[in-house]
Design a protein around this nucleic acid. Sequence first.
DNA 1: GAGTTTGAAACT
DNA 2: CAGTTTCAAACTC
Length: 792
Amino acid sequence: MMDVVSPELNSLLPDEIMDTEAIAMEEELPTEHLSAPPQSEPEPPQVPMETEVPEIVSLCPATTSMQMSSASTDAQCSTSSGTQLLLAPSGLITVTTMTTTTSTKTTGPAVTQNLPKISSVTVPANHQLIINKVAGAPAADGKSPGAAVLKPEGQKLLVAGLSKTGQPIMLALPHTWNKPATTQCTGDAKAQPTQIKMLTSVGKPVIAVSSASQLMGSSTTLQAQQLKTLQITKKPPVSTAGPMITKLIITKALNNKGLSSTASVAPVVTGRVVTQSTPLTPPRTITIGETVSTVPQHTSGNSKVAISPLKSPSKLTVVSVASQSPNSPQKSVTLPLNVALGQQILTVQQSAATSPAKAGTSQPTAQTVKPVQTVGGVGTSQFKTIIPLATPHNVQQIQVPGSRFHYVRLVTATTGSTTPQSGGSTNTNPSIQQAKPVMMNAAVRMSVPIVPAQSIKQVVPKPLTSAAQVVTTSQTPQRLIMPATHLPQIQPNLTSLPPGTVLTPAHGSGNMGYAVLPAPYVTQIAQPTFVTLTSSSTFSTATPIQTQARLSLNGLSTSEATSRPRKPCNCTRSQCLKLYCDCFANGEFCNNCNCVNCFNNLDHESERLKAIKSCLDRNPVAFKPKIGKGKQGESDRRHSKGCNCKKSGCLKNYCECYEAKIMCSSICKCMGCKNFEESPERKTLMHLADAAEVRVQQQTAAKTKLSSQISDLLTRTTPAVTSGGGKLPYTFVTKEVAEATCDCLLEQAEQAELNNQPQAVAERLILEEFGRCLRRIVSFAGKAKTDCPISC
DNA sequence: GAGTTTGAAACT
DNA sequence: CAGTTTCAAACTC
């Protein structure tokens, strides 16, 4: 088994991603969620980031048979195709891909002691969902009494679970399940079934929890639990015209301190997700979409959706991390999962913290994966896209709000990489398991109860090809992390990593490396050219990308970058590997620059990597935007460090504040600053600048209009000239005509001189002659006779 | 376009 | 952390 994400690499991930514990803590504590994760509990050295991944979702392919484990600690779903589905009780939903048909059972001890659990979830390709929910405290042997068992009954899928009180919960699947999985039932799944409806993505119910109280188990015992909903959308084969989408909604009640039992059931809004809300703790929804292609291998054992990098060859790690204010009532995470052709795209979406009901769910279509970009209010969120190229089979997109990069991670399931340990290290280690509930909280924390799909900004879907699909966001620059050659290990904060950064996998973990590419690459890769890129297992494919890439987003949106591309740098001594270089500082490769001895390109990954590391060593936030939001409550932007101007008065572009068109703030250490609101100099300058800008705009408009007119005139006149139908008068003023006219005028001048006539008379004669010449020219033009010499 | 000025980054 | 040097952009002529 190969670790997709090595421990080292995990350490490289941004704090927003990695710090799931902290995120979880937000659920528990009103502290900043991005705070450093607790280190009290040691982790195994080989435990990668998965242990801190907030969400691990396991999805079973269509042909999978379910073998549900009743273990309270981890829910598992082993399929005949080798796909293993794990749903950690702590909130981790693990999708692991197995190359063998061996069903994996949870070997680790109970993870949580007090949290309700979803023991297992199964999402066959035929729109089926199996959920085992174990709310009761796990038994010592890892199995809770009355473990949830899933049994298909004909066309029905039973999702069973036990409440905290041991009351079984059963979820019924729709009759559309024509492929009942061979599910092993270890408990009484039929006892007191919870009503769960199946909802389809097209608005048809796939799975809906009709009763929050039921799902939460006995209200008496789960009163303080917070209901959380997880939705998994499964996409039918691409070739299938019908938008049949199966969605998995996992509603989990989590312990919530001191909450009253007045949990109320909130109807699903979009018809895609069922939402339950409690007065004190808003429901949270996680949506996971899966796109299933018609490719045979898709349904084969090798086609798997993996969302967890836990020591699984093919993993998708859902890392969500954006900061959110504690008072944010609702958050939603949308996780579209694209499994077409063995490729998977995972998108984590987070709504704005302050937005009460801003959530989105992916709208996967038959052909494309529509990673949800931003939910309303996430305008400032930034993303990272990690695209591993070494493994073209899987694509994982991770949108990380709070980071200005956009990662897409491509993960490939490799043979021999089975999922030996159910739940991986996350579940086997009790100490780690403590953090899992937190992870779930983190994921859930971001979820918002179902929101209308309209509120979601989605990227225009691209045709689903065999290549990885990359979705770009409209507002945020994106970065790619693509595999590269092995390079010295670095462990910078990914949030600060500029594009082009190469992240190497753990030793012996495989040949996967990651290079952060400029955001435009994502767009480029999304194009057909990306097929070549992803289809190749070598990093050399990245080279053409660079040549094709349109660089220079420079922190601007795509439209902005297009309209105002970054200036090329002129570095001569820094090799473009210092922050002196704007390209490098902005996390971009040099492209069409005037730099000398440039190392800021893919050809010098190693050097660039070292340079990035060096910069990050000096300043961990070296690659983060300097212009950020001001203090809380302030709407104006402000420089993160402030300027240090001495002579410019902060009214020249030397000043970074002025250059960014922001006022100097109290953190600036400038001298003689005139860049403040009431500064008359600044106002004058601004007025001048505005006036100049207006003039420029007017001139530009005039030029444009004139150009248009000329173009139009030429367009209209050209056919007349070429058609021989006649020439316009001006066309007769040829060189020969002009010369002839001049000769006529000179002749008049000579005549007047010979006659000793005064100058005034001479001029009059010349002008009269000129008039005659003009009349002749016009006359000739009127006759439309070409090439007719004008005789004086 | 060459030279100067400027301030951030890098260095000590 | 402060002072100095390096560097490339901004600016001037």
